[in-house]
């Protein structure tokens, strides 16, 4: 829009500032809470400025954890979450890009059926199939393992459609030129398709990493050993203090720590992320 009316500009900015406040205020409150002592938040007035216990709270959480809620140190839970999120993101991308490659570039029997099977996974997220999936994972002895945490969430090829779209924009002549240049199917995939889908892979990685990191219901279900607690599920367990008041300052410190990796991924991959979503020309 080229329109330039001061009134409109002001309104737009007010709307944006309001939006930022709505998002940022709870984060701020959480941060403030994580820097106060145990009782400050129970005293009736909620402090709005950081307190003196920042280093103390965070080092306690990272190193020792909260013994009363039975959760391991935050560092362990973050590592678990990281492994799960990476496994989900990388696994999903690998499966999706390969199945898109098969669907776009090969004519094989039952291709239509394969396509529809992939399509159906779109309608079956974990929440819908959670009971049978839990049964399968339990029977396979995958409870309390990284495989059990990540594989059921990988098993959907929803991103296949994104890659299919990407591959369809790659001109046929490029495929033919590669054929004449002596590149077999897998070589073509590695040398031409992968580099050309780089920014799309990055964009998808950001989305899937956050999706994986934020998994709550499934990890809560399949992990009973505290060695495999993920951070998002761990926060919930900490807040459920049965024999006392929840230690909000520590819960909030954990929440702040849990936010760091997704934020880092988004900031670090911002440029590729935007490029991958808006770029159309190959």
């Amino acid at each position: 829009m080229i329109e330039n009316r001061p009134g409109l500009n002001l309104l737009a900015h007010l709307t944006l500032i309001f939006g930022v406040c709505v998002v940022a205020l709870p984060v701020w409150v959480a941060f403030v809470a994580s820097t106060h002592g145990a009782t400050d938040f129970m005293s009736g007035t909620i402090p709005m400025w950081p307190g003196p216990h920042l280093v103390e709270n965070y080092s306690q959480m990272l190193g020792a954890g909260v013994s009363t809620s039975g959760t391991p140190p935050v560092a362990t839970m973050m590592l678990n979450s990281l492994i799960m999120a990476l496994a989900i993101a990388i696994g999903k991308i690998a499966i999706s890009i390969l199945s898109a490659f098969a669907i776009v570039y090969f004519r094989f029997p039952l291709r239509g059926l394969a396509f529809w099977c992939i399509f159906i996974t779109l309608m079956l997220p974990v929440e819908v199939r959670i009971v049978p999936t839990f049964q399968v994972v339990a029977d396979l002895g995958l409870l309390n393992s990284y495989a059990g945490l990540s594989i059921p969430l990988i098993a959907s090829a929803t991103a296949t459609f994104l890659f299919r779209q990407v591959f369809l924009t790659i001109p046929d002549e490029l495929t033919e030129a590669a054929r004449i240049d002596g590149a077999g199917p897998m070589k073509f995939f590695r040398d031409i398709l992968l580099p050309l889908s780089r920014s799309n892979i990055a964009a998808l990685f950001v989305i899937l990493f956050i999706y994986g990191w934020n998994q709550y219901l499934w990890p809560l279900l399949v992990t009973t050993s505290s060695d495999y607690y993920t951070i998002v599920a761990g926060i919930k367990r900490m807040a459920d203090a049965v024999d006392g008041l929840p230690q909000w300052h520590l819960v909030m410190a954990t929440a702040m720590l849990a936010m760091i990796p997704p934020v880092a991924v988004v900031i670090g991959m911002q440029r590729l992320f935007v490029k991958g979503l808006v770029e159309t020309e190959k």
Binding site: P171, E173, L174, E176, A177, P195, L196, K282
Partner: peptide, 8 residues
């Protein structure tokens, strides 16, 4: 016709 050079 469209050169089909590998863009990357």
């Amino acid at each position: 016709q469209n050169y089909a050079l590998y863009p990357h």
